[in-house]
Simulated assay, not measured.
Amino acid sequence: MIIDLPDTTASQVSKTLVRIRDEAGAVALGRVLTLIITSEIGEEEDVIAAANEASREHPMRIIVVSTDAAAPAPRLDAEIRVGGDAGASEVIVLRAHGDTASDLRGLVTGLLLPDAPVVSWWPGECPDAVCDTPLGRLAQRRITDAGSADDPQEALRRIAAGYRPGDTDFAWTRLTLWRAQLAAALDQPPYEPITRVEVAGAADSPSTSLLAAWLGLRLQVEVDVEVAGSLPSTGIHRVVLHRASGAIRLERTRPGVVSLDQPRQPQHELSLPRRGLRECLAEELRRLDPDDEFGAVLASGFGPASAVAPSR
């Protein structure tokens, strides 16, 4: 069910939610958090679909705030989606025009679930220091996506510069399977120190940069990053861990599959699919405490003492 509220107010949206609960039995019981999504008008549906899918694992209230600050007249249009149109959640879409878009905190404060955690998500270009933004101050966790920015590497540097505990980025979340496979490979004999690391990926891939920084931090070695134009257009292509007995090589051979080569062992093909918005969002919503590892990687790989040595 979708209820349209054109030219409305935040107070009227809240009253309509109460009426829906009383008349149709759509209740907030069982909702574990409020997810606030910042978007632009006309770009909401993909992120709503991802949030609806994630809500089947994390029932929540979803508030989508999409703006058109350049509109000449202030106006707030709203939608409330419940039932089959909202997955296991309630979806409130607020489209703020003109000066109405200048007070995002005021628009959403009265719509937050009481006594429930708040997560804010910027699926596109994100502001500097999201923790200090009006919606960032409301949230325990703040999610960005450097990979969706026009300049992903610059976006990652800005995220690192403004990092506060509670921040995370989907470029880091997309590394979970890569990190697990590399850790599993190193958890087998021979237990020799790694002497050098190579990471290869697309020039615009922030995940490649984060993986290199993580390996440099945890293995305490210099990491060579290759971003040659001949590599696939997106994502990580290859990781090579050098040690005395030979190299461990993890390389993407085709979509969704990587090959694992280790000395004196047969080659293995492993499933390692690229992760979509739904998978990344669901993973990040499983933990609401600060991701200290992400903070340490940002400080190590993007600070003045970075151990990552990019090459072309």
Rank of each mutant, 00 (worst) to 15 (best):
V82K: 00
A88L: 02
V82C: 08
E44N: 12
P59S: 14
I37T: 08
E45R: 14
V64S: 09
V65W: 11
E43H: 09
G87V: 05
S89E: 00
R81S: 04
D68G: 03
V64T: 03
A69Y: 07
S66W: 04
I63L: 13
I63M: 06
G87R: 09
D77V: 07
D68H: 00
V91R: 03
E79Y: 12
D46E: 15
R56V: 03
D46K: 06
T67V: 15
D77S: 11
G42I: 12
G42D: 10
A51K: 05
A78V: 09
A49T: 10
H58V: 06
A88F: 04
G83D: 14
E40M: 14
A88D: 14
E53D: 12
T38S: 08
R56S: 08
P74V: 08
L76V: 08
A54P: 09
D77Q: 13
S89L: 06
S89R: 07
E45H: 06
A54G: 04
V47Q: 05
V65E: 00
A73M: 06
M60H: 07
L76W: 01
G84E: 11
A49Q: 14
P72N: 01
A71H: 15
V64R: 03
R75Y: 03
D77F: 01
G87W: 07
P59F: 13
L76D: 12
I92Q: 02
V91Y: 10
E90H: 05
V65Q: 05
A51L: 03
I62D: 01
I63F: 15
G87A: 13
E40T: 13
A50P: 00
E57S: 14
E79M: 04
A71S: 15
S89D: 06
D77Y: 00
M60T: 12
D68E: 15
V64N: 04
A50D: 03
T38G: 02
R61M: 03
P74G: 06
A54T: 13
E90M: 09
T67G: 05
E43Q: 08
A54Y: 11
E40S: 13
H58P: 03
E43M: 11
V65T: 04
P72C: 02
P59W: 07
S39G: 10
V82M: 05
I63E: 08
E90G: 07
E57T: 12
A50N: 01
E53R: 11
G84T: 03
S66E: 11
I80L: 05
V82G: 05
G42W: 15
E44K: 12
M60L: 15
A86N: 02
E40R: 14
A49N: 13
V65M: 03
G83R: 05
A73I: 13
V82I: 15
E45W: 09
V65F: 04
S89I: 14
